[in-house]
């Protein structure tokens, strides 16, 4: 039993506490050697701003090479009351990152008695990605996430950030996408935003959910690694909405109804 964490010069740093207690392993650096391991990967994820906040969606498929590993993967994860992280890439690394992130924000709030700033949160994910560099070089455990949050203090409160595998962070003006189906999704969102009925930011919640379903369906049409809607097994994408009131998951009933009436 030891006293307060002394290992980090940063107060409220949960990752430093985990490292000090050896509860996380540093990634072994093995530069130049690419692994032959066929890892499980996942995806198409997207995020865009709409009238009430920001919508984040992801398909449910996890693949390993040509094999479908799992068709009920949850790639859109609630990190705190107003933040969501969506993952593309290796779930093994990504889910662990999400867990660390969730605990880091809570640990900071509880120990420092204030909420971490949005900049701090965005940067925390960037740091986790950088720590994963050893894996990226070996070609396994690559993660390319999206991070969406609602910042009440900002004049433009809905925020979407996307990253590259090495941890560079970019703020999206209107939308972002990641994963193998991203090119298709990006085209759909770009087209809709510029020449659609109205810009994404002016759309209501239901219109936005519908657009997310259509975009994911478009991605699944060409990309084998992206799972479409399975109506027999009732498998729908995960869609989360972040507004001033917090994070809400859109229910399967709503998705089923919208899909049947307007997509399929």
């Amino acid at each position: 039993m030891d006293g307060p964490n002394q290992s980090s010069p940063l107060a409220g740093d949960f990752l430093a506490v985990l490292k000090q207690r050896k509860l996380v392993n540093d990634v072994p650096h093995n530069a130049g050697h690419r692994s032959e391991l066929k890892e499980t990967t996942a995806t198409t994820i997207l995020g865009f701003k709409f009238a009430g906040g920001v919508l984040v969606a992801g398909d449910r498929r996890a693949t390993s090479g040509n094999v479908v590993m799992y068709d009920r993967a949850d790639k859109v994860l609630e990190i705190d009351r107003h933040s969501v992280m969506a993952i593309a890439g290796s779930p093994a690394t990504a889910w662990e990152m999400a867990r660390i992130l969730e605990h880091s924000f809570q640990f900071y709030r509880r120990s420092q008695l204030q909420e971490m700033s949005v900049e701090g949160k965005v940067r925390a994910l960037s740091k986790l990605l950088r720590d994963n560099l050893g894996m990226v070089i070996q070609g396994v455990g690559v993660v390319v996430p999206l991070f969406a949050t609602y910042d009440k203090k900002s004049s433009d409160p809905a925020k979407v950030f996307f990253y590259d595998a090495m941890g560079a962070q970019f703020e999206a003006t209107d939308f972002a996408s990641s994963g193998s189906g991203a090119p298709a999704v990006r085209s759909v969102l770009y087209y809709e935003n510029n020449w659609g009925a109205k810009p994404l930011r002016e759309r209501g919640q239901e219109e936005s959910i519908l657009l997310a379903l259509k975009a994911l369906d478009t991605a699944a049409e060409a990309d084998t690694a992206t799972g479409g809607v399975d109506r027999h097994a009732r498998i729908f994408p995960i869609i989360k909405i972040v507004t001033e009131a917090g994070v809400r998951t859109v229910g399967d009933d709503t998705l089923s109804e919208l899909f049947q009436s307007q997509v399929a």
Partner: peptide, 14 residues
Amino acid sequence: RMMAIELASTEGFT
């Protein structure tokens, strides 16, 4: 207080 938060958080994470 810090001891309690660290104990609980590491347990909850692990």
